[in-house]
Write a protein that binds this DNA or RNA. Structure first.
Lengths: 212, 212
DNA sequence: GTCTATAATGAGATAGAC
DNA sequence: GTCTATCTCATTATAGAC
């Protein structure tokens, strides 16, 4: 039987700092352009110490995903039972996406480094789309949108989901944007809103803050 | 002064075979999960020989981009002066995207390996969107779509571009699809079509093969 | 043009002292 | 918990024989 090394404290401050630094670096340059040496150096510690807290780079990604998961669930549930302002709801989504953008951007690298995140990300995506679907249904029932069949809702949600999820990467790859600002994020929200626009009633448009 | 080594023939069969193999491998697993050793082995030759034809991995990517560029330009220009069937035009786009999907999927890795492709990809993206904009304008003038302002066209094209470009990655990351089939590609085309649907006139809908 | 070495690098990971 | 030192390994790349 194997002798296990002492387990690091899961609430340790150092651990939290490593995750913070790591998220920043990953958001900036992506998980496989960032080495464990750089993470440790940026956190102001030695690489050996990093490996005391996270024995594999994979474990860094998994711990970050835990936090990401909570953030997404909180964001998706935000409208509650009576969504007040579509615009604010969307803004919340884009903010979360911005704070965890490497998860949206570097899927391939992430799955290679931490294969078991594949299933978890998919679950998260399904849950999120389910919550958005509920919100949409409520909008229809409340007369803010024209009635939509489940198939139509699915089409709309898929398109909106894709534009949301890949907006940041699109700015980088398709528009050559290097520094993403809050204006870019607001622009993304408008793009997504535009997908729903033709289906909004007058009441819906004023709710969304879109009347001219 | 430097003594240059003999230049490999740019039209050599071996070179072409390497690029073929390379595209397949990159499409399957991404440029930085594929090593030069694997490329050479799959092409049935020694690694040293690969380096005779391409002194750096970067050069493989650049050569592949040349081919990709031609393919995109050909696809974008396809509708010519009187676009006949939107559906076929879109199908052409999705086919090209499928054949070169790693360029759409692995942007981060590609830019790290071949930084000078960044500018070229952006140019290509701009050109492509310009051509699509022209096609859209013609549709409006021909009465297939309701009249659109330039700003509205830009919104629509941006959304359609994003859904197109990231469709394959979305299937993989958001839907857990591992094997992409032609049905998935057709589905993507329908998704994009759905963005334009509210703006199509009756004539436009029958042109698009969308009447029920 | 193709092969057999082999160098050079750099990343992930571990052992063990403090 | 943190550090120093070291190992292992994959990958890119080169030199030179055939």
């Amino acid at each position: 039987m194997t002798i296990s090394r002492p387990k690091p404290n899961p609430r340790s401050k150092t651990r939290a700092r490593l995750l913070d630094v790591c998220r920043d670096l990953f958001n900036e340059r992506g998980p496989d352009s960032v080495t464990t040496a750089q993470i440790a150096a940026t956190a102001g510690m030695n690489e050996g110490n990093l490996y005391y807290h996270f024995q594999r780079k994979e474990q860094l990604l998994e711990a970050l995903f835990d936090a990401f998961e909570s953030a997404v669930q909180q964001t998706a549930g935000a409208p509650g039972e009576a969504p007040e302002l579509i615009r604010d709801y969307l803004a919340g989504w884009f903010r979360t996406m911005w704070e965890w953008r490497f998860f949206y951007r570097d899927g391939a690298a992430i799955f290679r480094l931490a294969p078991n995140l594949r299933a978890r990300l998919q679950t998260l995506s399904n849950e999120g789309q389910g919550l958005v679907d509920q919100a949409l249904q409520q909008m229809c029932e409340a007369g803010f949108m024209s009635p939509l069949s489940p198939a139509e809702r699915a089409m709309l949600i898929t398109n909106a989901w894709i534009v949301s999820a890949y907006w940041i990467d699109y700015l980088r790859a398709g528009r050559g944007v290097t520094e993403i600002t809050l204006d870019h994020i607001a622009w993304g929200a408008r793009q997504v809103m535009h997908i729903f626009l033709p289906y909004l009633t007058q009441a819906g448009r004023s709710l969304a803050g879109l009347e001219l």
